[in-house]
Simulated assay, not measured.
Amino acid sequence: MIKNTPSGIAHVAIPTDDPELTVSFYENLGFNRLVDHGVRGMLQCQTCVIEYYPRRQEEKPAGCIDHIALTCEHLDEAYEEILAQGHQIITNGIESNEMFAPRTNRFFLFKGPNGEKIEFCKIDE
């Protein structure tokens, strides 16, 4: 078992063909816009966060969960542990994006035993 375990679910990611409909649907369920980049963003209702983004036709069916993101305080150490256990890393190492700009979102993804994608992530201050 790894030492640098996740501390909670960061978000669940859902590809969509209709971002406006997706946002409207989840707002009706009580979610608010946490991050809004037009066709992609994040919605939050209390501790539950949903990421939505345009579906890539050849890769993902719309509406299906794409990955489960787990927060991890010691991301670099966890990456080394996951790598050492032989899990299939499906990102280019630890990557980053500006989803929460000006803070940086650092993450890596690997495959679970059923083909599911697991993301470990940390938002740097």
Rank of each mutant, 00 (worst) to 15 (best):
29 L>Q: 01
119 E>N: 02
47 T>S: 15
12 V>M: 14
122 K>D: 10
60 K>V: 13
117 K>P: 02
64 C>N: 14
45 C>A: 15
47 T>E: 15
41 G>V: 06
27 E>P: 01
5 T>V: 12
81 E>W: 07
9 I>W: 09
98 E>I: 03
33 R>V: 11
58 E>T: 07
84 A>Q: 11
20 E>D: 14
8 G>I: 02
121 C>P: 01
117 K>S: 12
104 T>H: 04
12 V>S: 08
60 K>Y: 14
47 T>K: 12
120 F>D: 03
50 I>W: 02
56 R>M: 13
7 S>C: 12
40 R>C: 10
100 F>E: 06
94 I>H: 04
85 Q>M: 13
52 Y>A: 00
51 E>V: 07
27 E>D: 11
35 V>Q: 12
113 P>C: 08
104 T>P: 06
62 A>N: 12
114 N>C: 08
93 G>S: 10
12 V>R: 05
116 E>P: 00
122 K>T: 09
119 E>F: 01
30 G>F: 01
74 H>A: 14
59 E>Y: 09
122 K>Y: 15
13 A>T: 00
82 I>F: 05
120 F>R: 01
30 G>E: 12
108 F>K: 00
29 L>A: 06
26 Y>C: 07
100 F>W: 08
109 L>M: 11
6 P>W: 11
109 L>C: 08
2 I>P: 12
29 L>R: 06
70 L>Q: 06
